[in-house]
C-alpha cells in the first residue's frame, strides 16, 4: 500500500488532519517525528501546518534544522514527492527547497478565511497525474486513460477551488528573476483569485502575496508548497471537498508506480 508520511514538529497543529486526508485518499498515513533521522520508507512526505517552534526567529527557521529535514532534503533531491502546507511551506522556503520567502501579511493581521484559488497549468506532481513507466503495455494504456480522465476532470470542475487559509506570514515574495523563472517553468501552482476564477489585480491577494501566489513547486514539480489548507476540506463533513484532489492525485500516481 502507498505510504505517505506526515512530519510532526514541536508546535505542529495539522498533522492529524493531514494523516486523515491521506487515509481518505486511500493511502496509508505514516506519522513521522521531527527528531528521527529517517523517513520509515514512505513514498511521499507532507510537512503540515502549525507553529513549529512557536514561529520563533522566523516561521520555519528552526524546524528547518530538525534531524528529519536532512532526510527530507535528500528525499526531495531524489525527485520524490514532498508537500508543505502553510507552516510546511514556510519550512520548505527556509530550507531552500523552494525559492522565495513568506513574510508578514501586508495587512498585519492574522487571516482566517475560506478563499477562492485558481489552479494554474503547472508541473506540480501533486496535482498533475504523472506519466508512469511500465513494462506492461496494457498497464501503460490504462495509465494513459487514467491520466486523460484526470486532466479532463481538472479542466471541467477543478480550476477554481475554495480552501481555508489561516496564517500571519503568508505574503509570498521573491526577486524579479525568480518570479520570471517560476512563471516560465510552470512552477506557479495556485493563485488567489476572485470567486468566479477571474484574476485579481496585483497586490490584492488577502495577504499581499506577490503576483497573488498561493502555492509554488520546484522545477521538477516534486516539491510543492502552499499556504491554503486542503487537508481540512477533504470530506463532506466540512461542507467542502475541494482539498481532496491535493491528496488523491499523488496517491493515485504512487499506486500506479507500485503496480
Amino acid at each position: 500500500m502507498t505510504r505517505i508520511g506526515v512530519v510532526t514538529f514541536p508546535g505542529t497543529l495539522d498533522d492529524r488532519d493531514a494523516l486523515r486526508a491521506v487515509r481518505l485518499a486511500g493511502a496509508d498515513g505514516v506519522a513521522l517525528w521531527h527528531a528521527d533521522a529517517d523517513l520509515r520508507g514512505v513514498d511521499a512526505v507532507i510537512l503540515p501546518g502549525g507553529f513549529s517552534y512557536g514561529d520563533y526567529l522566523r516561521c520555519g527557521a528552526i524546524a528547518r534544522f530538525s534531524p528529519i529535514m536532512d532526510a527530507v532534503g535528500r528525499f526531495a533531491q531524489q525527485g520524490r514527492p514532498v508537500m508543505g502546507i502553510c507552516n510546511g511551506f514556510q519550512i520548505l522556503t527556509e530550507a531552500h527547497l523552494l525559492p522565495g520567502a513568506l513574510i508578514r501579511n501586508s495587512g498585519l493581521k492574522f487571516i482566517c478565511a475560506e478563499v477562492a484559488l485558481y489552479l494554474e497549468d503547472s508541473v506540480c506532481q501533486w496535482l498533475t497525474p504523472q506519466e508512469v513507466t511500465s513494462h506492461s503495455r496494457t498497464a501503460a494504456e490504462n495509465n494513459h486513460q487514467v491520466r486523460h480522465h484526470h486532466a479532463r476532470q481538472l479542466e471541467a470542475t477543478k480550476r477554481v477551488v475554495r480552501l481555508p487559509i489561516n496564517h500571519n506570514e503568508g505574503n509570498y515574495i521573491c526577486d524579479v528573476p525568480t518570479l520570471a523563472k517560476l512563471q516560465a517553468q510552470g512552477q506557479i501552482v495556485l493563485r488567489y483569485c476572485a470567486p468566479d476564477g477571474s484574476c485579481l489585480a496585483d497586490g490584492s491577494a488577502p495577504n499581499g502575496a506577490l503576483d497573488n501566489i498561493a502555492g509554488i513547486c520546484n522545477r521538477q514539480g516534486n516539491v510543492f508548497g502552499l499556504m491554503p489548507h486542503p487537508e481540512r476540506v477533504c470530506d463532506g463533513i466540512s461542507g467542502n471537498t475541494d482539498g481532496a484532489s491535493f491528496f488523491n492525485t499523488i496517491a493515485q500516481t504512487l499506486r500506479s508506480i507500485e503496480q
Binding site: 513574510i103 508578514r104 501579511n105 495587512g107 498585519l108 505574503n171 515574495i173 526577486d175 499581499g208
Partner: peptide, 14 residues
C-alpha cells in the same frame, strides 16, 4: 535587517 527591497509591513505600521 530586512533587505532594502523587501516590504516591511511592521515598519510601516510603526
Amino acid at each position: 535587517m530586512l533587505k532594502p527591497e523587501i516590504l516591511d509591513p511592521q515598519g510601516k505600521a510603526v
